[in-house]
């Protein structure tokens, strides 16, 4: 297991929207080891408040030995991170968890909602790199408004994937849910759906996939204390009545294994 705890330098901090931030962090070891769907745990303060590290998906790794995260400011930890200055050092633990199982030899559909769009960029790039099929992955992105989408749209398009969008307010693409777009697509039965987003969206995608017998992988979020299988706090109820652990069995699970309760 190549997980690392290290002090990494914050190279760049960008405000993508009012409350969305992107951080670029320097770490050759994490950038090299990470696979799409994995996450890092970041210490947001040096004292005891907040006490626990905060988990963030890896948005993408880059060839210059850096990696990026994208997050929404929702509380004290994310707000402290958003105010970190470029050049400061942050303690990062990672890469953690089981990422997406890439199946480059079957058609891929990536479905992202809100902050869940961010880690799909990393996935889309890897799928393109390993692509053996004619058709590039189909990417479906849902967000509240155009603002939240625009920061990522160009980067997806630059990869050469096909992108469809949906927004709650109709300011970009389909006006409504990204799951409407998934239904309309009528995916081939051998397709794999890779999904990351809010729980209700993932549950809806899981239902669509179950009805159509499509393979589906989802990335779940739970509260986490350690991120490395030690606290047993990150429980995910499974269909077979047992519990999985998001940080070590996941965060990516086969959607059909999960007991969805929304």
């Amino acid at each position: 297991m190549s997980r690392i705890q290290e002090k990494v330098q914050l190279i760049r901090s960008e405000r993508l929207t009012d409350d969305n931030c992107r951080l670029t962090l320097a770490s050759q070891s994490i950038a090299e080891a990470a696979v799409p769907g994995q996450f890092v745990m970041i210490q947001t303060a040096s004292g005891h408040d907040p006490l626990l590290r905060r988990p963030f998906s890896i948005h993408q790794t880059r060839n210059d030995a850096t990696f990026q995260i994208v997050f929404k400011i929702i509380g004290r930890g994310t707000s402290l991170l958003a105010h970190c200055r470029e050049g400061e050092e942050l303690s990062v633990l990672g890469p953690l968890g089981q990422g997406y199982r890439l199946q480059p030899d079957v058609p891929a559909i990536l479905v992202g909602g809100g902050m869940g769009i961010a880690p799909l960029l990393f996935l889309a790039r890897r799928l393109m790199e390993q692509q053996v099929l004619q058709a590039p992955p189909q990417v479906l992105l849902g967000a509240r408004n155009a603002d939240e989408l625009l920061s990522f749209l160009n980067e997806f398009q630059a990869l050469g994937v096909r992108v469809l969008t949906a927004t709650d307010d109709g300011s970009h693409g389909h006006s409504g849910l990204v799951t409407d777009e998934l239904k309309k697509l009528n995916p081939l039965s051998e397709s794999v759906i890779y999904c990351c987003g809010p729980k209700p969206m993932m549950a809806a995608v899981a239902t669509i996939c179950r009805e159509r017998a499509l393979a589906c992988q989802v990335s779940v979020e739970t509260a986490m204390a350690c991120g490395m299988g030690a606290c047993l706090g990150c429980t995910v109820p499974l269909q077979d009545g047992s519990y999985g652990h998001a940080c070590s069995d996941g965060p990516v699970f086969d959607a059909e294994r999960i007991l969805w309760t929304v």
């Binding site: 006490l51 509260a223 706090g233 429980t235």
Partner: peptide, 14 residues
């Protein structure tokens, strides 16, 4: 074990 949520952070503790 117990159903989730199983952990929550509190001031300087959990």
């Amino acid at each position: 074990g117990n159903p989730p949520p199983r952990i929550v952070e509190t001031s300087c503790g959990m």
